[in-house]
């Protein structure tokens, strides 16, 4: 059976770009939404008491990590498969689709978990408003949500590694 050069009208190079892009997009959207929720509550609290800035900033920033995971995934695709080195055209269509699939855990999970982490952060920010000295504890709760984004990143990285190993 001949190796297809194009799958669903896209070359391997295009599939790989789509995978990396989707991961970055998913993580970015989720983080933007998540931070918005948290920052809105944070801004309200800062209006009343600007001194809480230091305690609030990490809590508001926590949903931002998913965007970074998406970004990392995209970069990994570019580095692992030497797209930056101009070797994109060498990627078989089948490998491209595999790369795309490997990117999906991050694309979905980082998007969804960041949004929910934003909601949790917003609630935790409320906790800081009432009890500033508990800012540390308030930071741990949203971090529990992030676990699943991290797991998705691990799965994606391992999948990308195995794909790279299979074409090496």
């Amino acid at each position: 059976m001949a190796e297809p050069t194009v799958i669903l009208g896209m070359t391997g190079y295009q599939w790989a770009l789509l995978g990396g892009g989707v991961a970055a997009i998913g993580g970015g959207i989720g983080s933007a939404m998540g931070i918005t929720y948290a920052a809105q509550v944070g801004a309200g609290i800062l209006t009343e008491d600007p001194d809480k800035f230091g305690g609030l900033l990490p809590i508001v920033a926590v949903p931002g990590t998913q965007g970074i995971y998406g970004f990392i995934t995209a970069v990994l695709v570019l580095i692992f498969f030497n797209l930056l080195g101009g070797k994109g055209a060498d990627i078989a269509a089948r490998t491209g689709v595999q790369i795309f699939i490997a990117c999906l855990p991050v694309a979905f999970l980082c998007c969804v978990s960041a949004i929910y982490q934003g909601l949790t952060s917003a609630a935790a920010a409320g906790m800081v408003a009432r009890r500033t000295q508990e800012a540390g504890k308030a930071l741990i709760l949203p971090a529990l949500v992030e676990t699943y984004a991290v797991l998705a990143l691990i799965v994606t990285i391992l999948m990308l590694l195995s794909i790279r190993a299979s074409i090496a």
């Binding site: 970074i68 970004f71 990994l76 991290v150 797991l151 691990i154 990285i157």
Partner: peptide, 15 residues
């Protein structure tokens, strides 16, 4: 296992 992913994040962004 998260330690690996988070550690890798630093390295990759730095790169």
């Amino acid at each position: 296992a998260r330690l690996m992913a988070i550690g890798l994040a630093t390295v990759l962004i730095g790169m």
